[in-house]
């Protein structure tokens, strides 16, 4: 399947009707439900991409998808003009994230040795959606037994106090 068809298939995939996806998604959404809307939407978009790549086609590549989407939109999203305003809808947020990601990727296309993320967002979302918690270390709920160190420095005047 041509890449663009795969990408279109992803964009048209009926996530709403996929019970397995919806079930996993509820866990993801519940754990982030009070995050600002942008963070929630980013979680959901990445969960969709990850799910699609695992269950429908392993061939879909996030970076390629982003590049394709950018090419199709033909926008320079790193326009520094301070006059640009847009309505803030979930779709816009997703597009923004994709285009911005890709703009930066394109700037560094030659660097195949780009340091990998220690744990990608997709991995995290996948683990949570599958009901597996990412490794969480148990930190003892204790107070320090040593006495706090008393201050030795005088508070410094703030820059705005020095002027006035």
């Amino acid at each position: 399947m041509a890449h663009n068809e795969l990408f279109l298939q992803f964009e048209n995939y009926e996530f709403d009707r996929d019970e397995a996806f919806q079930k996993g998604l509820q866990t993801v959404v519940a754990s982030g439900k009070d995050k600002p809307q942008q963070e929630r939407e980013a979680f959901i978009q990445r969960a969709k991409f990850f799910y699609f790549s695992k269950t429908v086609s392993k061939k879909i590549d996030y970076d390629e998808y982003v590049a394709w989407k950018l090419d199709r939109q033909n926008v320079n999203s790193l326009d520094t003009s301070p006059t640009k305003t847009e309505a803030c809808s979930p779709q816009n947020d997703i597009d923004a994230q994709l285009t911005l990601n890709s703009s930066q990727n394109l700037e560094t296309t030659t660097s195949d040795n780009k340091p990998p993320h220690s744990r990608s967002f997709q991995e995290v979302v996948k683990m949570i959606a599958a009901g597996e918690m990412p490794p969480v270390r148990k930190i003892p709920d204790e107070l320090n037994k040593n006495p706090p160190k008393p201050p030795t420095m005088e508070p410094k005047p703030k820059p705005w106090k020095r002027v006035s």
Binding site: V28, S31, G32, K35, E39, F43, R119, F121, V124, V125, I128, M133, P134, P135, V136, R137, I139, M153, P155, K156, K158
Partner: peptide, 21 residues
């Protein structure tokens, strides 16, 4: 730091703050 000009603190979360330490 309001005391030491070359000192900086960063508060962070594992797993994008979704779960974990």
């Amino acid at each position: 730091s309001p005391f030491v000009e070359h000192k900086l603190a960063c508060a962070s979360s594992a797993n994008f703050g979704l779960v974990g330490n």
